[in-house]
Design a protein around this nucleic acid. Structure first.
Lengths: 154, 154
DNA sequence: CTATGTGCAAACCGTTTGCACACAT
DNA sequence: ATGTGTGCAAACGGTTTGCACATAG
C-alpha cells in the first residue's frame, strides 16, 4: 500500500479492497473470484484487471497460468524478486499446493550455454489428483464453489 | 492416416490437408497458422479445431500451451506415449527449440510420495531471447509472419 | 481544482457450436 | 443411401477499452 502511494499511484477503496480480497483468499485466484471476495462495497471486473496489471507491475502480485484459459493472481508476499515458486494442482478440485523450491536454475544456465538464449525464465506446473479426490471417484471433494473448466494437464 | 481409417474416422480432404500442413510447418503452430498453411483447397478454422481435437484424442497430435492464450499443436511423431518434450521459446521471435530430455520424472514421484497426489503430469516451458534477437535490439529477427501477442515469460 | 481511477457497456479475439449442405463409405 | 464431416455464421467467455462520471491528492 505504501508501495502504491510512493509510486505515484492513488490509494482508492477499490484497490485496497481488491488487494485485501486477494490476501484473504490466500491462493491463486481468478478475477471473478477476486470481485466476489471484495467485502466493503463492490468492485468492477474491469477494475480488478486494471489493478492486477498495476500490482503485477509493482511486483505486489504474480500472475499464474494453469493452462485452463483463466488468469490467476496471487500475492507476491515473499521477497520481491529472488523467490518464485511452482504449483501442484489437483485436476478435479481446486486444491493447489505451493512448491517452495525450484531446481531449475542450473537447467537454465545450461540452456543458455547450449543454445545461446539469454534472460531465460521458465514456467512449471504439476497436475495430479489429490488424495481426497482419489477417494471420491467422480467429482471434486475439497471446495464448494462452482467448477469452471477442467484443467488440462501437461 | 491409417490410424483414422481403422478408428471409425473418415479420411477427408480437410483432415488430410490439415495434418499435412502441420507436418510441413514442423513446429508448434496455431490454428490460424495451420489454415494458412493448407495447400490444396482451403479449410475452415472450425474444422481445424475439430480435427485437432480428434487427432489429439487419437494421439497423432499434441497440444502445446505457451501461455500467450493461443492454442498450438504439433505432430506427435515420436513414440506414442512414453515420450514428451518441452520447449525453449524466444520471447521476441517465433523461434522454438525442442528440448528432448525431461528430467522431471523423479520429481513427480517425489511429489506423489510427499503430497499423496496421483497421476501426476507437468507442464514446463522455458522462455528467453534467442541469439539473433539479442543482436537486433528491437524486434523479431527470424521469421516474417506477423507477431500476434507477446509471450509472457514464467 | 485537476489528474487519475472507476463503472458501465461495448468491443475484441480465440474458441465452440448449431445447422443445412456435402461427401466418404 | 446414410451417417459423418464441413463451412458459415452466430454464440460464448474471458479480457480489454472508450467514455463520462467520481474522487484522491
Amino acid at each position: 500500500m505504501e508501495r502504491l502511494r510512493s509510486q505515484a499511484g492513488r490509494v482508492t477503496r477499490s484497490r485496497r479492497g481488491v488487494l485485501e480480497a486477494l490476501a484473504r483468499l490466500r491462493r491463486p485466484s481468478t478475477p471473478r473470484q477476486i470481485v466476489d471476495a471484495v467485502t466493503e462495497g463492490s468492485c468492477d471486473l474491469a477494475t480488478v484487471y486494471r489493478s492486477m496489471a498495476l500490482f503485477e507491475h509493482l511486483g505486489l502480485v504474480r500472475r499464474i497460468d494453469l493452462g485452463d484459459g483463466l488468469a490467476r493472481f496471487e500475492i507476491a508476499d515473499n521477497d520481491p524478486d529472488g523467490h518464485h515458486h511452482h504449483h501442484l494442482v489437483c485436476r478435479r478440485c481446486e486444491r493447489i499446493v505451493q512448491l517452495d523450491d525450484c531446481i531449475l536454475a542450473d537447467m537454465e544456465s545450461r540452456l543458455s550455454r547450449h543454445y545461446g538464449f539469454q534472460e531465460i525464465t521458465h514456467r512449471l506446473e504439476f497436475f495430479g489428483v489429490c488424495p481426497d479426490c482419489q477417494r471420491v471417484r467422480t467429482r471434486a471433494a475439497g471446495s464448494k464453489e462452482g467448477r469452471d473448466r477442467k484443467l488440462r494437464g501437461a
